[in-house]
Design a protein around this nucleic acid. Structure first.
Lengths: 331, 331
DNA sequence: GACAAAGATACAAACGTTTGCACAAATTTC
DNA sequence: GAAATTTGTGCAAACGTTTGTATCTTTGTC
């Protein structure tokens, strides 16, 4: 492995100058800089990152901590963050917590030990509060939280605009002509779901309507089925679901009950999971935009991870399951 | 940040002994070792990984290079590998190539510069051959390839048993009573798809049957639709698809053409994408087992990444789309 | 009790880079 | 034209760990 010392010897100058030349310091003459660059290329020099890190006291690595990487949402966030960070010459060290507090602690310690230049994370379900995070990271390490955030911690927080998103989704159902609209609201102990419910209610209130039904169960297909059948009995003609999986269950149940979608019943889900486009009828969904969440998180880190919340808009993807007007017209 | 030197001073010994004590060298007395450990805990010492890496000439980081992280297959591989590597005290540095040759080169350089202790990768579509990989990594760096492998490179290769898997899937269709079986074979310039076609043919040959049709298009829903309609016209009653998306398209087309699945027509896909379980009818699929691929890749690295191929079995997940016998019986 | 062998620790030199400070040369200022 | 400023480079000390070799201490052996 060729070092800056060898380059220096080859050119009859000192390692310091070579170092400065390579890092583009204004303190070295243009001609020397050029000579160094040429020599470096000639010898196939590559900076020893470990030595550099040691001297500088930090690495060019950003740690990302997520519950699981093999979830489309998280992997897309990572993908987005990685793109931005790579562009800035930084690499990404990934840790999974498997939703466990212990693994989260271990991951943060690993990152701290590797002297990463910052941490971007979404905490695990197992972490009931966030005190351990600052305990491990200390006061210096830049911290960016996304999606699942402890709002009382220092640093930047990047979240979807769940209120506005749910508001838009619900308005869409109203505009399509549905009038008895209910919701599958999901776990209300999560801030995201609570905001979606608020957005739903506000949209109806602004339209002069009452919520036709509110189901606070978890958002899996089974609860979707049960809620949809109940909603049908109580005269609902549309549902906004805070998750796609519960919306899927709802559609199946409604179809089996002989209800036509979107003619008789409209549904909008949330998350824009890949299967939503593949179903029949395809499912309208409020997209979470995870890549953008990742990009913004990375950018927030690059900008210094200052305290504050950045809100990323959600996009409503309209598909067959809520396309009431057009379905009616075609008949 | 507390260093081994401070621990040494506090105990009146030298940094060397502290270092050895912390790394569990047999050359230090049990009592000293214990004293060091206690003092280290007391002062909250944490090893400076960068200094350690510099001295040792390598890091405790393994690089993983994949085309895209936000694909279920790759993220699951990473997840599996990460689990095993973490267990062994190693961290994971992730790079995406976005299927581009240039990004792959850049990623490998980054890893090389970070002096990772090994590379686990699946090459991008843009890499027509693998010479650049060894050019960058040199002769020393342990290399493990998975799924998309250049077989002529040194190091370990972990691949699915595509032949055996397709064989099993096709046999399953035969056992269910279908007799005019075709295939959506996919891109044959990829080794995986070529092997699946071979497995398909062998299974039919062993059952004394002829392939009823073979479609060599890419495996997207659209080609699946077209192929399925053609297959129906030419008297097929089943298809093995080398991808789930083409199988999805096929099912939709067949349903629209009035064919009942699985009563009139059976289908098995490949990859076990998450949507396969959510469809109606649900799609039988040959699972790729990416987590296991990841685990095996990590293990192969830990074992020294010796030359050779490790073949991971695929699992056939039987769902409604091929459940001919039971569907018939129920009537 | 002397001497060898082993056991435990100390010494010191790396690893390759960065960076504050010093210094020399070139340029500007009055 | 001397002093002041700028510009470019060299010197040397870090950064904190690891590890080969040397040294000291203990134990064992005859």
């Amino acid at each position: 492995m060729v070092t800056i010392t060898e380059i220096a010897q080859a050119l009859g100058i000192t390692p310091s100058t070579v170092s400065r030349a390579l890092s583009g310091s204004p303190r070295v003459k243009a001609s020397t800089k050029e000579a160094v660059l040429r020599k470096a290329a000639e010898l196939g020099y590559e900076r020893n990152v470990m030595a550099s890190n040691l001297r500088k006291g930090r690495s060019d690595i950003v740690g990302i901590v997520v519950p699981r990487i093999n979830r489309e949402f998280f992997s897309s966030v990572i993908s987005g963050a990685e793109s931005v960070l790579n562009e800035a010459g930084l690499s990404v060290l990934i840790c999974q917590t498997h939703e466990r507090y212990e693994d989260e602690v271990r991951a943060l310690r690993t990152l701290k030990n590797n002297r990463v230049s910052g941490v971007i994370m979404s905490h695990s379900i197992g972490s009931k509060d966030g005190t351990h995070i600052l305990e491990i990271l200390g006061d210096e390490m830049p911290l960016v939280q996304f999606d699942r955030v402890f709002s009382y911690l220092r640093g930047a927080k990047i979240v979807n605009d769940n209120f506005e998103g749910a508001y838009k989704a619900t308005c869409h159902l109203v505009e399509e002509g549905y009038r008895h609209i209910g919701t599958l609201a999901g776990y209300l102990n999560s801030a995201a779901y609570a905001l979606r419910l608020k957005g739903f209610r506000r949209a109806l209130a602004d339209a002069g309507l009452e919520p036709a039904a509110e189901y606070m169960d978890s958002i899996v297909p089974e609860t979707g089925r049960a809620a949809a059948l109940d909603a049908l009995r109580s005269g609902c003609d549309a549902l906004y679901s805070a998750g796609d999986f519960s919306a899927l269950g709802a559609i199946r149940a409604l179809q089996e009950a002989g209800s036509r979608i979107p003619e008789d019943f409209g549904i909008v889900g949330t998350a824009n999971e890949s299967f939503t486009a593949l179903m029949s009828p395809s499912l309208s969904s409020l997209a979470l935009n995870p890549r953008e969440l990742g990009r913004q998180s990375a950018q927030a880190f690059l900008d210094g991870a200052a305290d504050g919340e950045i809100i990323v808009p959600m996009e409503l993807v309209i598909r067959q399951s809520s396309n009431h007007k057009q379905a009616i017209c075609q008949k």
